[in-house]
Write a protein that binds this DNA or RNA. Sequence first.
DNA 1: CATTTTTATTTGGTATACCAAATTTTTTAT
DNA 2: ATAAAAAATTTGGTATACCAAATAAAAATG
Lengths: 221, 221
Amino acid sequence: MAHFTHHSEENYLKTLFKLESRQDKKVNNTALAKALNLNPATVLEMIRKLTDRKMVQLKPDKSIQLTEKGKKKALLTIRKHRLWEVFLVEKMNYKWNEVHELAEQLEHIESADLVDRLDGFLGNPPFDPHGDPIPDKNGKIKPNLSVPLSDCIPGKNYTVINLIDTSDEFLQFLGKLNILPGRRIKLLEKLKYDNSFSVEVQEKTVQFSEKVAKNILVQSV
Amino acid sequence: MAHFTHHSEENYLKTLFKLESRQDKKVNNTALAKALNLNPATVLEMIRKLTDRKMVQLKPDKSIQLTEKGKKKALLTIRKHRLWEVFLVEKMNYKWNEVHELAEQLEHIESADLVDRLDGFLGNPPFDPHGDPIPDKNGKIKPNLSVPLSDCIPGKNYTVINLIDTSDEFLQFLGKLNILPGRRIKLLEKLKYDNSFSVEVQEKTVQFSEKVAKNILVQSV
DNA sequence: CATTTTTATTTGGTATACCAAATTTTTTAT
DNA sequence: ATAAAAAATTTGGTATACCAAATAAAAATG
Ligand SMILES: [Mn+2]
Ligand SMILES: [Mn+2]
Ligand SMILES: [Mn+2]
Ligand SMILES: [Mn+2]
């Protein structure tokens, strides 16, 4: 029963993590307050609590920095948020632009075990519906993770990393479409009725089957 | 962003609803405090807030009574709780005895729409994993709802209400098992490997197929 | 009916999480 | 270096939800 929600702690950590990684520059109280849409006095007070909890460090230059502990908690919260978003889109039939607010609520459900089960239930998706990578249960985002184009999100840009099928036939086919490792492509659409893929390559739109898409490893840009 | 959680309101209403229906007698502050495991001073304070919000009425004899508004909110919270429990058992593979605490968290997610979608996703289950009925989206628990025995929960007692198949063959078969409308039975087990049913009828255990179970309408006791 | 006992209520606190309005400190620009 | 601007901090509040201890009121018991 003990009401240890600390609901807002997760929001602070998540926001701090995003600010730290988006710009590489230091995060100050004003920036954090702006990002959280809160009063600077409120944020300062909370940062002091988070310092006591060893989640952040207040540097001598007054910049705020996540500790390893804080970073991990931030990533685990991001994991929860993104997995719930996948659930909402894939299972509850929401559109990708409708799920954020609900995920803001669901991300605060406390149970590492539930999230891990959800992950499995959803087939261990590498990305959320907006194309953002989903951290693993240890809070690690695999760097340079390449995934089959068939698992990707329409509307996002990718770099071709590798090809699984290396038969001449396949490579020649891709050659005609101008697809090769290193190439920047954009996944335009996954067509429902025949599972075919529509992709933009060098200003041109090309089409191919799901079988082809499964053999193209890409990485989100 | 506005933190309108009113997280605890739902707990008070739910608990009040259960106390009101379990015993038919009036609910006083002490009983509610005991049920919520809170200090009576805390509960009194909250009951005054709930009175302002027209969720409860403080009767002249100091008993606490849910208004229609309060009863509806209580039932919608119970609906959320029970549907999430079904989700946890059916989709997340938890055991029925492991889901209550998680459902206590999930029941406070604010979105009537999500719960309705969840309901559909789960196939509109009539009961939660403990055999308790799930209110509909208007907060109504259908009185005397009879359901196929095939949808029921092992370990619970039921009354046979009706038979869908009325062929002589079927009725004669049931006659041999001593199953007929009005009979009290207990569902012992749903056997995984052949989907057969094990039921206790008048001190004896009988077995039959899922096809038979689908044709027996029962009501939980 | 008077005395326990129980229940209700009041009072003064606590913790979390917010805010607005000073004030102080630091930075930037002139 | 000084003035202006920006950022940090302090101070005094608010709302939600809790509690312990004291007091008042009501109910039960002999
Ligand atoms: Mn989101
Ligand atoms: Mn959030
Ligand atoms: Mn439960
Ligand atoms: Mn609850």
